[in-house]
């Protein structure tokens, strides 16, 4: 059983094609990193999985259930009951580049609100879970703090905790460290490594090659809206087949040194 499967996803903004027949499968427990130059369509792909972008055509399966099937942007041929659709979408947790925390709520409330409203948990259950998650991401002392009073790294860890509170089976990370000061990247990556160790399925759009090398089961290279390479990191970094990937790695790796 695959966790996520896409077939021929296409997406364009006006005349600009950002996804061209993207077909990717992610198995349960896998950590998949998607890398590539900016404008390659990586973020759009991730957002399409979560229905934050509507695809123009293609199919999306989540846990082998077809959730999107389009020939055009207007009609989804899959008609799922609302409750079932919500249940499936809750299998996906999302972490954004710019955190998107709720600034009018404290850390604790940020993690509790969807639990009580969407998962219909009691106040007490939600609080207990929220406190456990805050501890997990190392923010116990920030429970009553508002997000804007916290550093970028702390905010992103809080955002991860907020997504985890819904018990997703897959975590989608959209460049989770790109908006952070360099010295704060490590603490967020550590939390993510910890998650990977626990066996949660992860799809990570990132520029952190070190993370991809160490943690990913598979690394996907996207450029110009297409998947150009899909390989385990050992192969991906040492023996890349695609010419554009070789060029990309050369540029990235010389910059890192």
């Amino acid at each position: 059983m695959s966790m996520i499967k896409t077939e021929n996803l296409c997406k364009s903004f006006h005349s600009l094609e950002v996804l061209k027949n993207v077909s990717i499968t992610v198995e349960q427990g896998e950590v998949v990193c998607i890398v590539g130059p900016s404008g390659a369509g990586k973020s759009t792909f991730l957002r399409a999985l979560n229905n934050l972008e509507t695809i123009n055509s293609g199919k999306i399966y989540i846990e082998d259930v077809l959730v999107e099937d389009r020939d055009n942007i207007l009609t989804n041929k899959v008609k799922l009951p609302k409750a079932q659709r919500l249940a499936i979408m809750l299998e996906l947790g999302m972490v954004f580049q710019r955190f998107n925390l709720f600034p009018h709520l404290t850390s604790l409330e940020n993690i509790m609100i969807a639990q009580t409203q969407v998962r219909k948990r009691s106040e007490a259950q939600a609080r207990e879970k929220a406190l456990a998650l805050l501890e997990r991401v190392g923010l116990t002392d920030k429970a009553d703090e508002y997000p804007n009073k916290m550093s970028g790294g702390q905010q992103q860890r809080l955002a991860i905790a907020r997504a985890l509170a819904m018990d997703p089976k897959v975590m989608l990370f959209d460049e989770p460290t790109s908006a952070l000061d360099p010295e704060l990247v490590g603490e967020v990556l550590d939390v993510m490594k910890d998650l990977a160790k626990d066996g949660i399925t992860m799809v990570v759009v990132t520029h952190e090659m070190g993370f991809a090398k160490d943690v990913a089961d598979r690394v996907i290279f996207m450029d110009d809206g297409m998947v150009l390479e899909d390989a385990p990191p050992s192969e991906f970094f040492t023996n890349p087949k695609n010419e554009r990937l070789r060029e990309f790695l050369r540029r990235i790796l010389t910059k890192e040194q």
Binding site: N50, N51, L52, L86, M89, L90, L92, G93, M94, F96, R98, N100, L101, F102, P103, H104, I113, A114, Q117, V118, R162, A163, M166
Partner: peptide, 29 residues
């Protein structure tokens, strides 16, 4: 910020929940 709508949607919140609990409490200030 549009990201507020997206975060709420990603957490499974409905349009009315998003408006009531996330957007309007921020907008009203």
């Amino acid at each position: 910020d549009k990201g507020q709508f997206e975060a709420a949607k990603a957490l499974g919140m409905s349009y009315s929940q998003t408006m009531r609990l996330i957007i309007i409490p921020q907008a009203y200030r």
